[in-house]
Amino acid sequence: MSSLHTLIVDDERLARDELRRLLADRDDITIAGEAANADEAKAAIQEHDPDLLLLDVQMPGESGFDLLERLDAVPHVVFVTAYDEYAIRAFEVNALDYLVKPVEPQRLDDAIDTVQQRTDEASPQAIAAEDDTPPTLTAEDQVFVKDGKRCWFVQLADVRLFEAAGNYTRLYFGAEEPLIHRSLSHLEDRLDPDQFFRASRQHILNLQWVDDVTPWSKKKLKATLSDGTEIEMSRRRSRTFRDQLSL
């Protein structure tokens, strides 16, 4: 079992120390660093690239949710809260992992075990949007999406289609289609080009979900996704697609 690089984010020093102490006995956890607010957390994420965030929800300035929304890719996250009815309801409704303070050692152990199990399936990276030389987002990575009261950790492998909506991008996964506050171009720069294909000004396709590609008009191609959605490619991108295919 690999050691999880863990970042503790909480505005109270005593709370951070307490988590550190509770985790001291586990040899499958390495505390990579600590942060007292969202800004510190972002810096620490750039520096340490943690596998796991233990994240307090209530912090001065930006909340834990705000922080996640500002990351291009989020690692595994376990929320920690003292008592916040709204946050707890959100965790319950969206089936997110969370712990309540004071943290029970057994509950913490269980939460870490769950994360370890998930790590066997996928190891999402943590990527701050401000990274200068950003690592590429792969299908294993996940983004945090918040749409009103609902929120998800969405693995990019599950996203069929990215659709431009001004400064926002609409994600299509499962039966959901929420917006994230990122432009399609920004995402194109980050996404792994072998897996995610810019089909037009409007769309990025997840090639894993493409069932069929057929000629549409003289110089255009049309992709059909496994859910039946048909996406028209631009002329230029159709040419690129043909070139890549013939290679």
Partner: peptide, 18 residues
């Protein structure tokens, strides 16, 4: 003020060691 009480209990737990 449950938020305060749970946070305080958490602080106490940390202080017991410190």
């Amino acid at each position: 003020n449950p938020h305060f009480f749970f946070n305080s209990l958490n602080s106490v737990r940390a202080l017991i060691a410190e």
